[in-house]
């Protein structure tokens, strides 16, 4: 039993890590006022980029960096179109999602690649802790970035001037402009950060967790990350909790057959998405979202 739990927690950690990278980035973008649905594209594109990069360079680290670069490219397109040319951000996001889904599937069919995978790092002593040791301290190297990244993002958003301006831009672009904050530039920067983090998450999925790329391998995890941000009420703590919750559900689903519980596989596969829906229904109401979330801002109409 204890071993079962250890295994489930470990697998949950592996599933949670990509979600966490993506959701942290998405949270910054949403705090700045962009409901950035192209995270799915960023994630899928970088999963492909990571797999291809590691295959070409022979290094999973370089693969990871190439994945981040792909995430950034998608972010640049999203940011320029939605926050320089003020095209509706959802239209841009939808288009990017479809474009990346199609192009990665197409490229996969026309390119032969042998993606590499990170080896596992095990922190001495800590990884021996019962139940959670393995889940928290015996993972692929990029996983450990999270320990620095979570407090860093918190500090940036709540303690730095940049973060204050990001939050102001997402709450009230008009007042922010009057105060002298370049709203759309801040929003673009937030999307770049989101792209880099989503790229990290996507590449981690291919070169960290799975070691391969399959068509549509993210399968909506970008959207689950958006759900986690909303579930978490646009706070770090809530977002992390949301990611863990979805990951635990996913891990449990994978573990159930092994434990001997048999449920129709189709129901199991849809479980995380149903859970996301349920969690939204129960917890996302009444949460205070950034007031200008999703609204395009065109300055100069003062």
């Amino acid at each position: 039993m204890i071993q079962d739990i250890t295994i489930i927690l470990d697998s949950a950690s592996r599933l949670a890590a990509p979600l966490l990278f993506v959701a942290l980035g998405e949270m910054v973008a949403e705090r700045a006022g962009t409901l950035n649905i192209s995270v799915e594209a960023m994630m899928l594109g970088s999963a492909f980029g990571g797999a291809l990069g590691s295959s070409v360079t022979g290094s999973p680290v370089l693969g990871l960096l190439i994945g981040i670069a792909v995430g950034l490219v998608v972010a640049v397109v999203q940011a320029l179109l939605s926050h320089r040319f003020t095209i509706n951000q959802f239209v841009v996001g939808l288009a990017l999602n479809i474009l990346v889904l199609g192009s990665t599937s197409f490229l996969l069919a026309s390119i032969d690649m042998i993606p590499l995978q990170f080896g596992t790092w095990s922190i001495p002593v800590l990884s021996e802790i019962p139940l959670v040791g393995q889940a928290l301290f015996e993972q692929k190297p990029p996983f450990f970035l999270l320990y620095a990244l979570i407090p860093l993002i918190w500090w940036v958003l709540w303690r730095s001037r940049w973060g204050l301006e990001i939050r102001a831009a997402g709450e009230d672009p008009d007042s922010s402009t009057i105060t002298g904050i370049p709203v759309n530039r801040r929003r673009r920067q937030a999307i770049y950060l989101c792209g880099a983090l989503a790229g990290l998450g996507g590449a981690y999925l291919s070169v960290g967790v799975i070691g391969a790329f399959t068509p549509n391998m993210t399968a909506g995890r970008g959207f689950i990350a958006i759900a986690a941000v909303i579930f978490g009420g646009w706070t770090i703590r809530g977002t992390v909790l949301g990611c863990l919750l979805f990951a635990w559900a996913d891990a449990l689903r994978l573990a159930l057959p092994a434990i001997g519980v048999t449920i129709t596989p189709q129901v199991l596969i849809s479980a995380p998405y149903l859970l996301a829906l349920l969690a939204m229904l129960l917890f996302a109401r009444g949460k205070r979202q950034p007031a200008a979330l999703g609204r395009t801002f065109a300055p100069g109409k003062a």
Binding site: R161, L164, E165, R167, E171, D174, I178, T179, R288, P290
Partner: peptide, 27 residues
């Protein structure tokens, strides 16, 4: 300095955060 007719304050932020928004440099 201009005190605007329709305020230039961000409602969701605190008083000191709003004041700091108009400044430069570290917070």
């Amino acid at each position: 300095g201009m005190v605007h007719q329709h305020f230039s304050l961000v409602r969701a932020l605190t008083v000191w955060e709003n004041v700091a928004l108009g400044e430069r440099g570290r917070i």
